[in-house]
Every structure is written in C-alpha cells, then in structure tokens.
Design a protein around this nucleic acid. Sequence first.
DNA 1: CTGAAAGCGCTAACAA
DNA 2: TTGTTAGCGCTTTCAG
Lengths: 327, 327
Amino acid sequence: MVKITDVARRAGVSPSTVSYALSGKRPISDETRRRVQAAVRELGYRTHARARGAAGGRSGVLALAVPMRSGVHVPVVTQFAVSVVTAARAHGHDVLLLTQGEGEKGIGRVAETGLADALVVMDVQLQDPRLPLLRSLPLPSVLIGVPAEPDGLTCVDLDFGAAGELCVDHLARLGHRTVALVGSPPEVYVRRTAFARRLVQGFTASAVYPCGTDRDAARAMAERLLREQPALTGVVVHNEPLLDPLIDAFEELGMRIPEDLSFTAVCPTPVAASARIPLTSVTVPSAELGTRAVHLLIRKLSGAPVPQATLLPPRLTERASTGPRPA
Amino acid sequence: MVKITDVARRAGVSPSTVSYALSGKRPISDETRRRVQAAVRELGYRTHARARGAAGGRSGVLALAVPMRSGVHVPVVTQFAVSVVTAARAHGHDVLLLTQGEGEKGIGRVAETGLADALVVMDVQLQDPRLPLLRSLPLPSVLIGVPAEPDGLTCVDLDFGAAGELCVDHLARLGHRTVALVGSPPEVYVRRTAFARRLVQGFTASAVYPCGTDRDAARAMAERLLREQPALTGVVVHNEPLLDPLIDAFEELGMRIPEDLSFTAVCPTPVAASARIPLTSVTVPSAELGTRAVHLLIRKLSGAPVPQATLLPPRLTERASTGPRPA
DNA sequence: CTGAAAGCGCTAACAA
DNA sequence: TTGTTAGCGCTTTCAG
C-alpha cells in the first residue's frame, strides 16, 4: 500500500504538504502542487479513507436512508438511490445504504461511529419520528419530502401540490368538470406521508380516493368511482402499481380512454410511457431529486448556506390518455 | 462523544482490556468482562468505526456492487440489496453501495482506500472483466452468479440449469412435448450473462428465443413462436418485464392460458403471483441469495473455509398458468 | 489474565 | 509558502 509519506518523499516535500496539496486547505505553490500531483499519479496513491477519518477529517461517505414499506414504489426508490450514488461519486463521496427497517437506529449509529459525514433521508413523513434526532445531530442532512415542521432542516421534493393542480388544470382546459384523485394505499395517508398530503392539496375541490395496488382494488375502485361520481370524466392517479390495473378495470367497465375518461398520472416518466395506454403524466423526477439532495449536502458540508425547502416545479407531459370531455 | 478511555476509566480497567473484551481477541475474566459490558451500556459507548479502521482493524463495512443495465430487473436487485443490508446488519456490518457504472473503478477504490472489508458483486458475467481484479484483491469477495472460471472465487446463485429443467419436467409431466424458452433481451446473451447461459442448458432439447421487453417485442415473439413451432403447447419465460405483455400477446392471438398454452416463469414469487394470470414459476430467491452471500463473506472474514460455488436448488410453485396438454 | 506503550495513516494546529 | 509535531480513537504488540 502506498501511503502519504511515500508520496511526500517522492515529491521531495513533507507529508503535510501533500495533504494540503490534495485537500486545497491552504495555499500551495504551483510548482509544489505539480510535483505532488505527479508523485501521486506515478505511485497511484489514494488517501486511506479510514485513516483520514480517524484524524478528524471527513470520511468521504454519505449515508442514504431508503424506505422499505408498502406504498413506496421500488423503481422510484432505486432510481433515486442510483442518482444519489452517481452525484455523490461526482463529488468524491461514497454512499452507505441504510434501510428504514432500522429507523432511527441506523441514523444514530452512523452518526456516533463517524461512519458517514452526512445523511440523505428519503420518504419523510409529515410527523416523522426521526426529525428530532436529525435536528440534534452534528452531521448535516437533507430530507426527501417536506415535513410539517421543516425548521432547522433541509428538504427537497417535487411540488406535489402544484403537480396535482397541474393535472387538474390540464383536465379543466380539456373541458372536464368532475375529476377524482386516486391516491396511494390508505396506509400512506394514515401515516400522513408528506407527499401524499401535499398532492391532495391540489384537489380541494375534488374527490380523493386512497386505493390499494392490486387488481381487485383497482376493479373495486373503478366501480365505486363510476357509482359515486356519475359525471366523472377525469382521474388523476398517484399510485404507480395501480396504473395498469386501473386502466384495465375502467375498460372492462366500458369506459374507453381517453374517449370516455381522461386519465392522468403522477409517476416517473418511464412508467407513464410504457403503460398499456401511454399516459399523460406529471413526472416524479427521482433522479433530479437525488442529484439535488447531494448538491445541497455538499454545500452544507462546505459550510455554505442552503434553502430550507427546495420544491421542484412539476412538468406535465401529454400522452395518449387524455382528451376533450365527451359530449 | 464517549470513547474507549471513558469506558476503561468507568470499568476500572485499561483501554486495551476494553478493546479485547469487546473483540474477544484474547481471554478476559468473566468478572472483568461483566464490568466492561456494564460500563459500555451505561455510557452508551459505540466504537468509532473510522478510528478502528485507522488502527488496522476492520471497518465493519461491506461493499455491494449492484448492476444498473438493461436486462436486469430492478425489483430483484432491490430485494437482493435489502437482504444484503439486513444480513450485514445482523452481523454488525454496514453496506456501501457501489453502482456498476463505475465498474472496476469502484471495486478498486473501495479496496485501496480501505473503505470496506469485503465485497459482494452482483450480476457476474461468464467472462467478467472484474474477475482478475477480484482475484488479486486482498479483500474477500462473494459473487452473485457463476462465471466460466470460478477458481479462486466464491460464488452463489440459483441453479438456473436445474430451474430450466424443473420447468420442462413440470411441463413434460403434464404431457407437453414441444416447449420453448423465451429468455432475456438479446444483449444479455450476447454479454454471456452467466445465469442466462446456465438456464439455457436445461433446454438443450428445446428451442431458445431471446426477447426484448416491450409490448411490440412480446407480440412479435408470440407470433414467431406460433409460426415456427406449430406444435407448441408450453413456454418457459425467463424475462420478468415481458411476462404480462407476452400473456396478453398470446391471448390476443387466440391462445388461452392454460387451456391452449401452459406458461411457466423463472422469476421472483411476487411477480409470478401478481401477474394477470397467476403463473406457475420457479422463484428467483433474491433474498436468500443475499443472505447467503453475506454469510459466506462473514465466514471468509473470520478465516473459515467456504465452498467455491453455492447453487441454490430451484423450487417450482404451481399456479394457474399450467395445465395438461390440449387434446 | 491484564496493562503500558507504540503505532495505524492521516490531518491540523503551531512554527517558521 | 512550507515543515515539524501532536494527536484522532482505536488496536495490538510487548511485558508483566
């Protein structure tokens, strides 16, 4: 293993100079920096992450707490995780994976053992039990999702309220007047998941129907909607696995899409595009959320100020599932 | 932060005794051990991972290299990753996430910087470019998938060959005589993905059709199968996203399942169970693979011998998609 | 069975 | 602009 003293000897400087040349934490003459860089390259030196950590520096690791519970859509989480890793790597960091099964335990452990420099916490609920811990921690964190009391925290999310409004606007412009929101499984709302609540806010004037994700739930929901809202001509669905089953269910009940019913979704683009009927949708920009979260964290690590909440504006893409209100 | 010296003082012993009491690396009297444990508990001590690393001990971190490419099914990877994290935690380890976008880079970095003690490498190809590196590394590793030359490596996988045979046996017992395997997208076979090749081996007597994953590919494949294999009454599908589209395609072409065509799948249980027609399937035991991989790694870390290849036996579950050969 | 002491490789005062 | 020197918190010789 090649260590910093090897590089120092090779470059004809002291170890601390190598350290500083690499970290940029104090001015180094161009000449010296060049020699150090050359030595690093020739010897293939990489600074030992653990030793650096012990010496009080940064570990170069971000921890990512990912949710593992029903009502959370695996592909979105995965895409998000990948974008976090990619962005972290671009900043020279690695990513430690924490599952939410551990809950606060994992966060506490990572903080106390100094395993990570900072935290990305996904799937934040309105009243999240982890918030007090996060606030008290010496490590900076970024939350995906906006809790009820975001004071002292840094949050990023899609602006779900605006996303709902955007869908309704789109449907309204097409002439639709009775629109329902079919949401995530009931437990998501019961748990007061922040994103679901905020999406609902775009729908104050409309009906909201939480729904499970299997084919039976889809069929039951379609029947109930047609019964309770006879004038219904538009739906907004915020429940990824339910999309295809619900399309099927409506069609089996004789509703053609988009001739009889306009169908919009809040979901990742690939899901909307590859549904049986390509869906007009507001995308959940998982990848951008991950990248943003990491950027914010890097800024916090460097001591720069960051906004308390970053809400990404929704963008609606029209596809084949929406059309004018039937005569 | 509570450190080992605090515990030592509290327990009335030396720091090294605390260290040994915790690691078990040398005999400690019961009395002393008890006092140390009490002090640890009272003070809420956790050994600082980075400092331990610097001092030459273990970092307590496993690195997991996950694939991110077409032909790899996200839910399986995710389930696998979760089971790895869970199993690792059960052994007191954390998990560092490496995306395969980094390829050998990530593995090299983790090894050289001492970030992780050991590696789990998913999605191993028959001729995997990472193998030489893995063989040369001082860190132990476990591969998911069996390469062409597994010498000096440790591998775990579903026995895909046996899985294919099991499906064919099942169909054969139901009277079917002409059976086709519809596989993963062509690039998987081109890349000589180990699992796909081995699955194919169960089918030496049958036809093998690689296939893409979209609805058009499904339709084209169904048409081609019925054209090229007029006597076809059974299929084995090893291509998760293709399952539903292929079912649809066959039915649109007038083939009822299972009356006209028996349909078996090699895929995770939840996928098989929630398909439009519940599918007779051999499960890909992602979770068990992850757990096994971690167990093997822990054993290797402790210096215990481990088998070169662990092939999990396939288990077939009958559901609604298979039946006797039509008259 | 236990303690004292010497580092692990690196960083960051403190000095020049 | 650079070097010298003390540690970081822990592990592990070496010595009892």
